[in-house]
C-alpha cells in the first residue's frame, strides 16, 4: 500500500515520525522543496519515494530503508548510512555518503566536494563526476565514479577503494593508483549491477575503470593487520 505525504501540508516531524513507526510499506513524499532531514533515521525496510529536491542530510543514518529522490540533494546525503539503499536521480552537493558504515548510495548525477569523506564501509556509485577531496580519510567501502574526480582524490585514505572511469585531476596525500585484480573487477561488476544506472552514457564496463587506494605510508599500517583490513571490506 502506498501512503502519500505532502510536505506543503504535513510537517517534517510528522513525516519522519510516521516513517519511524512503520514496519514496511511504500511512501511518496510530495513538495519536499529542499527541506532538510527528510527520511532521516529509518530502521525498517520501508521504501520512500521523494518527488523533488531535498535539503541537508536526506536519509541520514538510514538502516534497512530504501529512499529514492527524484531530484537533487543538499549537503550530507545519506550521512552515516548503516544499510539499505539511497538513490537520487540528480546531483548531490557536499559530503554525500559521509561516514557511511554500510548500504549503497547511488547518485545518478554528479556529487560535489568530499563525496564519501570518512566512509567506513558504505558503497557509493556516482554516475557523473565527484568534487575535490572525495574519499578524504575514507576507511572502508568502495567509491565508484563513472565520470571524473576533481583534485586531491583519496587524501589520507585508509582501506577504502576508489574506482574512477574518467580523469583524476590529482591524487591526495598517500593515495596511489593500484593494480586492478580479478576480485576488484568482481566487486566493481557487483556494484555497477546493484546501482542499475540508466542505460546509455551511464553504462560502463569494469575494465574501463582504474583503481586508487592507500599507499599505506601515512597511517600506521602493519602487514600483520591486513586480515582485519580485508575483513572490513567484506571479502577475503
Amino acid at each position: 500500500m502506498t501512503t502519500s505525504i505532502d510536505l506543503s501540508q504535513a510537517t517534517l516531524r510528522e513525516l519522519n515520525k510516521r516513517l519511524h513507526e512503520t514496519e514496511e510499506g511504500h511512501f511518496v513524499v510530495r513538495n519536499p522543496r529542499g527541506a532538510h532531514a527528510i527520511a532521516v533515521g529509518m530502521t525498517t525496510p520501508v521504501t520512500v519515494d521523494v518527488e523533488g529536491s531535498v535539503g541537508y542530510f536526506c536519509a541520514g543514518m538510514n538502516m534497512a530503508g530504501t529512499v529514492r529522490v527524484d531530484g537533487n540533494a543538499g549537503t550530507g546525503l545519506a550521512e552515516n548510512i548503516m544499510s539499505g539503499l539511497v538513490r537520487i536521480t540528480g546531483n548531490a552537493t557536499m559530503s554525500a555518503g559521509a561516514t557511511g558504515h554500510g548500504g549503497l548510495v547511488v547518485i545518478e548525477g554528479n556529487a560535489g566536494a568530499r563525496c564519501g569523506i570518512s566512509m567506513k564501509g558504505v558503497d557509493i556509485v556516482v554516475g557523473g563526476s565527484v568534487g575535490h577531496m572525495s574519499a578524504f580519510m575514507a576507511q572502508a567501502g568502495n567509491l565508484v565514479v563513472l565520470g571524473d574526480a576533481d583534485r586531491d582524490l583519496g587524501d589520507s585514505i585508509y582501506e577504502a577503494e576508489v574506482f574512477v572511469r574518467g580523469k583524476v585531476a590529482s591524487l591526495g596525500s598517500d593515495c596511489v593508483e593500484k593494480e586492478m585484480t580479478p576480485p576488484h573487477l568482481d566487486t566493481l561488476s557487483r556494484l555497477l549491477e546493484a546501482a542499475a544506472l540508466p542505460a546509455g552514457t551511464m553504462s560502463a564496463e569494469p575494465s574501463d575503470f582504474r583503481l586508487y587506494g592507500s599507499a599505506r605510508e601515512l597511517y600506521n599500517f602493519h602487514v600483520d593487520d591486513v586480515d582485519a583490513a580485508a575483513a572490513a571490506k567484506g571479502r577475503p
Binding site: R33, G34, H36, G52, S53, G55, Y56, N72, G74
Partner: peptide, 8 residues
C-alpha cells in the same frame, strides 16, 4: 546557500 530558498 540552500535550494529551499530557490524552491518557490
Amino acid at each position: 546557500s540552500e535550494f529551499r530558498a530557490i524552491a518557490q
